[in-house]
Design a protein around this nucleic acid. Sequence first.
DNA 1: GTGATACGTGCAAACAAGTTGCAATTGAGA
DNA 2: TCTCAATTGCAACTTGTTTGCACGTATCAC
Lengths: 138, 138
Amino acid sequence: MMTNLIAGLRAEGRRLTRSRKAILDVLEKSKYPLSAADVHARLKREQVAVDLVTVYRTLAVLKKLGLIAQVELGEGQFRYETRHGREHHHHIRCRGCGRIADLMLCPLKKLTALVERETRFTVEEHSLEFFGWCPKCR
Amino acid sequence: MMTNLIAGLRAEGRRLTRSRKAILDVLEKSKYPLSAADVHARLKREQVAVDLVTVYRTLAVLKKLGLIAQVELGEGQFRYETRHGREHHHHIRCRGCGRIADLMLCPLKKLTALVERETRFTVEEHSLEFFGWCPKCR
DNA sequence: GTGATACGTGCAAACAAGTTGCAATTGAGA
DNA sequence: TCTCAATTGCAACTTGTTTGCACGTATCAC
Ligand SMILES: [Mn+2]
Ligand SMILES: [Mn+2]
Ligand SMILES: [Zn+2]
Ligand SMILES: [Zn+2]
């Protein structure tokens, strides 16, 4: 991951900084996608002083480098999760407590061709999220 | 649809108003999901004076009544579309021009049981959106 | 139809997520 | 170590959405 980060940054003439390492590290350690505010809060907890604006800017860079993925879960905010070492997958969010769990499967791998035929668009990406109730909230 | 609206409203002790009819009507006529601002702009174009705040409040009511669905397409805003007379379906959005097209299929109908087994959540809903390039932008 | 009343609306203000301008700081190559 | 463009922090801003409150109006009982 750090290797990908360095390589990606250099390829665009960008620099490896303490903030960037720390932010990517926070995402690597999380079991679920984090919002910019989440990342910022965790950095603070770890005594890493990084401004929220830098978090936003860094998330944009990491996303452009393809190191993290942006996720939308109906909350009116974006979340981000690392792509390193994790296969393409999706999520489910509890409508009671907000808990987010990974769903390590994707029924769409084979469907791209069909979607392209139906819509006449070229498909580049997709998002698939589920909403429901976790065992505790049910 | 107007029938559903009246019935739904009454069931909750709410009233049928000019604004609510007009907003639902705008959504019924649109071929793609609209943002609150979109709805507001179309009302203005039709000389229907409704405040943007009322649009937001009405969208919330219609959503609660199950008459409209909320859609997220990676834009940092919500869109809404009527459910009346339209089967459950999904969308694709062009990364060039922003055009949104319906995709009248859902590969997930049979998948709920599997998702519930995998995650131990109860599944209530899902969102599936595609991103790519339309013929003109490709 | 009239009146009472609770629901709905407009306007201003507040919020919240995310972005931008700019001066000061710092990573990376020479 | 020096140079300089990339990065950062801070303040201000933009955009999408929500809230408070006084006034307006749909609905219902009479
Ligand atoms: Mn995940
Ligand atoms: Mn649609
Ligand atoms: Zn997938
Ligand atoms: Zn579906």
